[in-house]
């Protein structure tokens, strides 16, 4: 090997990298909750918002799904100063990720809603419930339960994608690891460290999702 490793750089850089990790995690959780709320609304509009609103929602979802996330990140970060106000890379990331992930959650939720038998909707109406009541009391609780594994899988993908804020220099796990690595002259060790954290977290979460999938399958 050409290189002599010195992993003692890790404890020295831990405080700074911890902040980056918290940002990555916070961004994931915020984009997940925001994305699921917005995605549910988009899915409902696509399914029952009428021809005009429905196709607007479809255009929004299909467009975002067919361009790279890096492009969307750049769009928002570079346009915001021109049209709205100057913005930090971190705040820009929060908004971009929520808007972008909503498109992906929308498709998962739409498929979940469509997998519920139509009779469930009719029985809601027959009981005198309004559209909103039927959705929130009858359809969505069942749909979400079926979708849970896929929603979590999408969230793992989302956590991996937060590393793309690299493009605008926001201080996430990858960026703080790289920065401290360069400061201490040990970038290689810090890259490996970051990769191990990403791997450990994603691998254990995806194993959990597999177990969840089995449990849900048995109950049904």
């Amino acid at each position: 090997m050409a290189m002599h490793f010195d992993f003692s750089v890790i404890p020295h850089s831990l405080p700074f990298v911890w902040k980056g990790f918290q940002f990555s995690l916070g961004l994931t959780l915020a984009a997940m909750s925001g994305g699921i709320v917005l995605g549910t609304l988009l899915a409902l509009v696509r399914l029952s918002g009428g021809p005009v609103l429905g196709s607007l929602a479809a255009i929004y979802v299909d467009t975002l799904r067919s361009i790279p996330l890096v492009m969307v990140i750049l769009w928002f970060f570079l346009l915001a100063p021109i049209f709205i106000t100057s913005i930090t890379p971190e705040r820009s990331a929060y908004i971009t990720f929520t808007l972008f992930e909503a498109a992906f959650y929308c498709e998962i939720i739409r498929a979940g809603i469509q997998s519920i038998p139509r009779g469930q909707v009719f029985s809601g109406y027959a009981l005198g419930m309004t559209y909103g009541q039927t959705m929130s009391n009858v359809i969505l609780p069942q749909a979400f339960r079926n979708m849970l594994p896929i929603l979590f899988t999408q969230t793992i993908v989302l956590f991996q994608d937060t590393s793309l804020v690299y493009a605008i220099g926001a201080s996430d796990l990858l960026h703080t690891s790289e920065a401290t690595g360069k400061t201490f002259g040990r970038p290689v060790e810090m890259y490996i460290f970051a990769a191990i954290i990403y791997f450990t977290l994603c691998f254990s979460l995806s194993t959990l999702v597999k177990h969840l999938q089995k449990r849900i399958a048995i109950i049904r």
Binding site: M1, A2, M3, Q160, D161, S163, L164, Y166, L174, E178, P187, V188, Y191, I192, A194, A195, Y198, F199, C202, F203, S206
Partner: peptide, 22 residues
């Protein structure tokens, strides 16, 4: 599958050459 593509890319580009014979 469990390491972000960007991190994998950086590993191949900056880290793996250091692990190879000199």
């Amino acid at each position: 599958r469990n390491i972000p593509i960007l991190v994998q890319l950086i590993l191949w580009f900056f880290v793996v050459p250091e692990l190879l014979p000199e």
